[in-house]
Simulated scan of single mutants.
Amino acid sequence: MKSPCVQLCSFDGRTGWCRACGRTKPECRSWKKAQPHQQRRIAADLPRRLSKLRAGAPD
């Protein structure tokens, strides 16, 4: 699976999620070595995370 990275890394201090792609720093670091099912699980949650970040809602 292709990385969701858009090369605009900026991590939210409250949630720890990247404001651009929605992943955490550990998820970003381990993406290439992650199993496909792990990548799919993370990718499936990114729209929810990004929506919460944009709304400013707590996790």
Rank of each mutant, 00 (worst) to 15 (best):
M1H: 12
M1N: 11
K2W: 06
S3I: 07
P4C: 05
P4S: 10
C5Q: 06
C5I: 06
Q7L: 12
Q7A: 10
Q7V: 09
L8Q: 14
L8K: 15
L8G: 10
C9I: 01
C9P: 01
C9M: 02
S10F: 09
S10N: 13
F11V: 15
G13Q: 12
R14Y: 09
R14N: 14
W17P: 04
C18M: 00
C18D: 14
R19Q: 13
R19I: 02
R19V: 06
A20D: 03
A20R: 05
A20G: 14
A20W: 07
A20C: 00
A20Q: 02
A20Y: 01
G22K: 02
R23W: 03
R23H: 04
R23P: 05
R23D: 00
T24I: 02
T24S: 08
K25F: 07
P26T: 05
E27Y: 05
R29P: 01
R29I: 01
R29W: 08
R29K: 04
S30K: 10
S30C: 04
S30M: 05
S30Y: 07
W31I: 03
K32G: 12
K33H: 11
A34M: 15
A34N: 12
A34D: 09
Q35I: 03
Q35V: 13
Q35E: 15
P36K: 06
P36D: 11
P36E: 06
Q38T: 14
Q38C: 01
Q38L: 13
Q38Y: 06
Q39Y: 04
Q39D: 07
Q39R: 15
R40C: 04
R40G: 08
R41M: 10
R41Q: 09
I42V: 13
A43M: 09
A43T: 12
A44E: 09
D45Y: 00
L46G: 05
P47M: 09
R48I: 06
R49V: 00
R49C: 01
R49F: 00
L50K: 12
L50T: 06
L50Y: 06
S51D: 15
S51H: 10
S51M: 13
L53S: 09
R54D: 11
R54S: 13
R54V: 03
A55W: 03
A55Q: 14
G56A: 11
G56N: 12
G56E: 10
G56Y: 08
P58L: 11
